[in-house]
Design a protein around this nucleic acid. Sequence first.
DNA 1: GTCTATAAAACGATAGAC
DNA 2: GTCTATCGTTTTATAGAC
Lengths: 215, 215
Amino acid sequence: MAQTETKEQSTRTRIVEASAELFRRHGYAGTGVKAIVASSTSTYGSLYHFFPGGKEELGVVALRSGGETYRRLVEAFYTEGADVVVATNSFFEGAAIVVEMTGFADACPIATVALEVADTSEPMRQAAAEAFESWLAVLEKRFSEAGMDPARAREVAVELFCAIEGAFLLSRTIRSTEPIKIAGRACSAAVGAAVGRTQVASRNRRAKRARNVIP
Amino acid sequence: MAQTETKEQSTRTRIVEASAELFRRHGYAGTGVKAIVASSTSTYGSLYHFFPGGKEELGVVALRSGGETYRRLVEAFYTEGADVVVATNSFFEGAAIVVEMTGFADACPIATVALEVADTSEPMRQAAAEAFESWLAVLEKRFSEAGMDPARAREVAVELFCAIEGAFLLSRTIRSTEPIKIAGRACSAAVGAAVGRTQVASRNRRAKRARNVIP
DNA sequence: GTCTATAAAACGATAGAC
DNA sequence: GTCTATCGTTTTATAGAC
């Protein structure tokens, strides 16, 4: 953790990253220590040297790692001063591309494990909760800066989180990016409305469609 | 399956229901056949008699069972001719109560397993997909009847699905019903807007808040 | 249909040489 | 720090009596 960046990737890092990927794809209980050792091209000895707490300690560290990586990703879309509506659109579009490119395997690095261990491992549950809250904090900050009052910014952040996570679940299950695209459109509109964007044109279009008026 | 309802609950049913509950709480890989046998007060012999395909066959059946139970629950809220906005409100409120009452253990009967097996077991993935689609079909039907055109009804159904599933995930992880309540409010508003409800009052309130006007 | 005993493999974890 | 061999347990699944 306090180690400065060296030229080659350390064994510890390889183990953590392999764990994070395997846990994300197959879940915590569905991933064996043996598979982690193989995937990280390390050994039992190294794994238990760095993580004396065994699989559960590795689970906590992997959740923190995945959480941080994803938080940086959110920050890369929602940069300081960026248009939050445009950022929201780009974020969901990017998510759809990644999910499709990985054959519907890689979506959220936390969700699968979080659901599995929510009432089984308190340390892992807490690590997952901290990861989620760190993403929400980024969104809240940007939404506040964009003009929402803090309470409303929290609400919209939670709405966006729920939409993308639900969309990831449905997309992976039915093997289609349709849910991510639908959720993205809905969230962009919701964020736009929350920052006080008028959107008269789109609102009128929606109203017409609801009344079955052919454009 | 073709068996008519008898006075006592059959061994097969006890096994399926115990499986569904354990899978929902601890996931597929996290639940042992031994635990299912114990929880259903049956035996290995009975379990493998009814499910010669073993744990995976039981997984498929449990997903179907949980999917049907939940579909009936959705139908109980979204009854024919019901106000879809009121139904949406009630549904999320009910969900929040159940989640809190079970100590944040019981939420979606499918989600945990769906994420675990999405690219591990094709039969289970399909069973989960069919369960989700059956819920969406109910919502689509009611939304269409309430005046949305079919394409829009599908979109709103998916949005609602994503919101509740994401909210379940966040709620279980941070151990708070706040996300379900936030998602519920957002969905009620979205459904209201999609059926062409004006909501001038609430829109004005929202706009004022966005501009930081103290009411 | 139900039961127990057990097979066969996989699991998480450890020991001890290097 | 890295490696292999192995411990003890748990896992899924089966056999065969009843």
